[in-house]
Amino acid sequence: MSLADILAERIRTTGPIPVSDFMAEALGHPEHGYYMGRDPFGMAGDFTTAPEISQMFGELLGLWCALVWQSMGSPGRVVLAEIGPGRGTLMADLLRAAAALPPFAKALDVHLIETSPALRNRQQQSLADSRVTWHQRFEDLPDGPLLLVANELFDALPIRQLEKNGGVWRERVVALDDGGALVFTAGPVVDEPPLAPAVLNASDGALAEISPQGRELAQAIARRVVTQGGAALIIDYGYGTSAAGDSLQALKGHKHHPVLSEPGHADITAHVDFQALAEAAAGIAAIHGPVSQGRFLARLGLEERARMLMGNATSEQAAHLASGARRLIDPGEMGTLFKVMALANPLLPVPPGLEPAE
């Protein structure tokens, strides 16, 4: 039985399901979930992330972590963790860069948070030369000062969608049409929806998105870096300021795919509301950013790093490096849509790359 059949039977039995339930099942169903049994990355997969585009991305995050570690007083042990580590490419590049500062490399206690057996297997291959511990949940990390990286994680956390009809907000749900196909429809009224004022007052027909898991995770990270020290770096695509709109999308073979078609066989994501994450962590941790990924990487020296690597590269390698750098920082590529935000212990200085605009 396919996941579409399982969901259809559930809807027939218990009624329409919220968009968040559909997304959670499509991505994380133990048997049929998109991430459970496949490697979705790269040209042979469905999408490509920054670490797969260029080694410089992970290297610069290694530099960022080293500088923040120094600002923490260079503790003799620090928990270095990544949530949603993909193939392990980012962490491998980060650790290679960290080796340039031996005291930092020696202090690292490396942990990955991964729920997918297939991806965990790929990570073990990528990091075969490193000592790494895997966990299912953020809460399972060991105690101690923390350096955390979450690249393109929050966009894959299930979202609720609300639609405004007749002046009221209703939960958007997934139901069945007369032919038994999955369709979107308006569900029950949502009293006092947790929306920013600008979104709450949107006109009829507007759609709004909420990520309860994203907010809860941001709060948990904030509490952790405040009580035990450290900082977390969140990199993703989305809105700097909360806005109404439908950003739910599916990708299959690097092309857009109908969201409700073939659940479990396509990636499903939504834009990250950075304002909502910041508000969830406000009053707990210090919040830096968001700034554009292009500005963040440029401030960390991406272009200088590219020139240095190109100096010892073949013409083909140099072209690949230049192309990768452009994709990461160009406003028409990932430079503007992708944003970077840090949640940090309030006693730390502003982390590198996230300084306020002059």
Rank of each mutant, 00 (worst) to 15 (best):
G264I: 03
L182Q: 02
T133Y: 05
P352T: 10
T241V: 09
A278Y: 03
P142Y: 01
V272W: 12
S261V: 09
T14I: 12
F338I: 07
H32L: 12
L119H: 07
I234R: 01
D143I: 05
G37Q: 14
P102D: 03
S71N: 07
A218C: 02
M310S: 10
P258D: 09
Y237V: 06
P158Y: 06
P197Q: 04
D143P: 14
W64G: 12
Q219I: 00
A66I: 13
G240Y: 11
Q275R: 03
A298N: 13
L300G: 12
F138H: 07
A202S: 15
T48I: 14
G301D: 13
Y239R: 11
D46L: 04
R122M: 06
V340P: 01
G205Y: 08
E358L: 13
I53M: 10
E25F: 06
H135V: 00
L27A: 08
A344H: 04
V132W: 03
I210L: 14
L112K: 11
T48Y: 09
A26I: 00
L302V: 01
G240V: 06
G205C: 09
P212N: 13
V272F: 14
L248T: 04
R224K: 09
K255M: 11
S211I: 11
V149R: 01
T48F: 05
L60A: 06
A92P: 11
A306K: 14
G230M: 02
K164A: 00
G28Y: 15
V183T: 15
E304T: 14
D267T: 00
A118M: 04
Y34V: 00
I234W: 01
F274I: 13
G264E: 03
Q123G: 03
K164R: 15
R10E: 15
G37R: 15
I83D: 07
M1T: 08
V79R: 08
P352F: 09
H135I: 05
L321K: 08
A150L: 08
A208M: 06
E82N: 02
V272K: 15
V79L: 02
F338N: 13
L95Y: 14
H29I: 05
Q317T: 03
A318N: 04
Q219K: 05
P197M: 05
A50H: 06
A250Y: 01
A318H: 01
A81H: 00
V225T: 02
L3T: 11
A344C: 13
D155S: 09
T269H: 12
G88H: 08
R170D: 04
G33M: 07
T185Q: 15
P145F: 14
P51N: 03
L153Y: 09
T227A: 08
